[in-house]
């Protein structure tokens, strides 16, 4: 790791001021950041530590309107074990957080850090290789190289996949997030956190330089709501998802009234599939129905040379997550 100045702000305004300096980067637990700095793939001159801002950015708390606030610094372990998310409607959050990485990582990794971590493409993550994505290379190396873990959907000139477990769950529950920039707070839908056209040479999120994520907001879920997160992996534990899906369903009298479906690990951003989810509305759950939804969710898939398996496996995961929300 190259030397850097470690800055320890004690308040949000201090953190904002420190983050504005050229060469500065924000750090929460640093699970992703320290890794990239050790690889010398990213060499900030100033690292601004947010961990001392627990009073502003930590914890999982209830807001007056019944919604839950997940502080940016809440850990994946806290989310997975939270009694506030015990109801079926919040299961996707618990499952997504609880399945990520390892106990050691979940004990430190934060909500915001998980959502904002950099893609895990092995070409992008190597300091030796120069690809198109923010590294001034001539082309996306994964498109012609080993792309077994890369995108099959929604990609343009860079086929990285978004690595966050939590993001698809937050999207399936139509969550919001609050940021602070220049002393002003702004609350938006989590969908706005990701670019509509996820190209190379762009940030993987829509935050402005120095903009700090404060919290995510989870709407109060009705008793009839159920949600789930499922992922496929090559190993039973301690592995990145090869495909993943989060879903939320509200049923009444055995008929699906509301539905959302979000794919992950198959595109450069977590990918809501509203057209596929629409097929569920007004229907009774059945494997035949879920099969059609799964086909629709991957209808526009364009697999690369080594990842055609992701389409079939991803469809199976969609069926599994829908069964989990309706059984």
């Amino acid at each position: 790791m190259k030397e850097f100045t470690y800055v320890l702000p004690r308040s949000l305004p201090e953190a904002e001021a420190a983050a504005k300096k050229p060469g500065a980067t924000l750090k929460a637990a640093g699970i992703d950041l320290v890794d990239r700095m050790k690889e010398r793939q990213f060499q900030p001159t100033e690292v601004v530590n947010l961990l001392l801002l627990q009073p502003d950015l930590g914890g999982i708390t209830a807001d007056a309107d019944g919604s839950m606030r997940i502080g940016a610094l809440a850990t994946l372990a806290q989310i997975a074990a939270s009694k506030d998310f015990a109801a079926e409607g919040y299961a996707a959050l618990r499952e997504a957080a609880g399945e990520a990485a390892t106990p050691q990582v979940r004990n430190r990794a934060t909500a915001a850090g998980n959502v904002l971590q950099q893609a895990r493409c092995w070409y992008l993550r190597s300091s030796e290789l120069h690809c198109l994505h923010g590294k001034d290379g001539p082309s996306c190396l994964a498109q012609v190289g080993d792309n077994r873990y890369h995108s099959v959907l929604g990609y343009h000139d860079c086929v990285r996949v978004h690595p966050s477990n939590l993001a698809p769950a937050l999207l399936a529950l139509d969550c919001e997030y609050t940021t602070q920039l220049a002393g002003k707070q702004q609350r938006r839908r989590v969908a706005d956190l990701f670019p509509l056209e996820p190209k190379a040479q762009l940030e993987e999120h829509t935050l402005l330089p120095g903009e700090i994520v404060i919290a995510f907001h989870v709407k109060a879920q009705p008793k009839s709501a159920r949600s789930a997160y499922r992922e496929s992996r090559e190993k039973l534990s301690f592995d990145w998802a090869t495909t993943a899906a989060a879903a939320r369903v509200v049923m009444d009298g055995g008929v699906i009234q509301e539905a959302s479906l979000v794919l992950a690990a198959v595109a450069p951003v977590p990918l809501p599939r509203p057209d596929a989810a629409k097929l569920l509305i007004g229907q009774k759950p059945s494997d035949e129905l879920f099969h059609r939804v799964a086909l629709r969710a991957f209808a526009d898939a364009r697999p690369l040379s080594h990842n055609a398996y992701k389409v079939q496996v991803g469809q199976a995961i969609v069926r599994e997550v829908l069964h989990a929300t309706t059984r």
């Binding site: 470690y6 640093g30 961990l51 372990a77 050691q104 004990n107």
Partner: peptide, 19 residues
């Protein structure tokens, strides 16, 4: 590198000593 910090297991290789 697993050690227990503040009551939870962590990867000490990914944690800055100052933290």
């Amino acid at each position: 590198c697993t050690v227990i910090v503040d009551g939870v297991t962590v990867n000490s290789c990914l944690m800055l000593a100052i933290d």
